[in-house]
Simulated assay, not measured.
Amino acid sequence: MLLVLAAYPLAFIASAALTRSSLGNPFQEFVGGANFQTALGSDAVQHSLLLGTGYAFGVAAVSTVLGTVTAVALWRTLRTGPFVRTVLLLPMIVPPVVVGILFSFIFSPSGGLLDTLIRRFTPGSGTYAILSDTTWAIFGVGLADVWEWTPLVVLLVFTALLGQDKEILEAAQLDGANTFQSFRHITVPSVAATIVAAFLIRLILAFKVFDLVHVMTSGGPGSSTQVPAYLIWRSALQNFDVGIAATITLLLAVVVTVVTIPVFLVMKRLRDD
């Protein structure tokens, strides 16, 4: 299974990156590092990798903070919130394409939820199309992404909170610790590794975002939302240049590895402590 699911695809991508490959005729000619020189010298590739990195860290941080706060709130109301907990997990079940369509309607400049609220509270202010703005379009996509995947963080952290040793909490209360002190010195350290792990998972998922961008903005306006996954798709299936697409994939893998290793080390240290 490892050979089929990991080794073979990786070997195929590496081979395509070192050759002149099209969609219909891969491995035509060995070109060595020419594809890497082309990709690294491309402003579009550089912009996409930087945009993807910033986007991933941004949505991962927001999702982790919101998810942790929500999980703590649910843990505090453990006996009264089963319905709320179920509702909060629903966005994770919705297919990403549906999420993209939903938020496209919300941000629609003609009758969308945001447009309706703007008209309601600021009459005469006109319309504002977030997804058509080169600055704010990526934030619109990020908001949809956060809405969809924050429940995953909630689920992980909430489960960790439920797994705390109650005897330690009871002992702290007997020693005179108040609720805040128990939470700060016992609860937070006990779930810190889980929070970092949730951030790591969320970070990797954010690097892979494609569906939302494809549905909501198609990489535009201009290249303002052209994250790496979308650029890879465009290179392979629109420009039919599988060699460049494979090269960008490997570069993205390097970037993801570099930025996730420190997070993984922090998680491992917290877990060992």
Rank of each mutant, 00 (worst) to 15 (best):
V188P: 00
I201F: 15
L212V: 07
T217F: 12
R234P: 01
G222H: 11
I186Y: 14
I204N: 13
A198Q: 08
V191S: 02
S224I: 06
F199W: 02
T194K: 02
A198G: 11
M216P: 12
V188L: 13
L203Y: 05
A197I: 00
A229V: 10
G222L: 08
G219M: 06
S182A: 08
G220R: 09
Q181D: 09
H214P: 02
Q181S: 14
L203T: 06
E170H: 12
T187G: 15
A197L: 10
W233C: 03
V215R: 05
G176V: 07
V188E: 04
S182T: 09
S223R: 13
A197C: 00
I186T: 06
H185E: 06
I201E: 01
V188R: 01
G222Y: 05
G176C: 08
F210M: 04
M216D: 07
S223G: 11
A206H: 00
S218C: 00
A229G: 14
I186D: 02
S218K: 10
I195W: 00
A172W: 01
T217M: 08
Y230T: 01
Q226K: 06
D175T: 04
L174E: 08
T194P: 00
A197P: 00
S190K: 05
L200M: 08
S235D: 09
A177S: 15
D175K: 13
K208S: 05
L174S: 01
I186F: 14
W233N: 15
S218E: 09
F199Y: 14
V196D: 13
T225H: 10
T217Q: 07
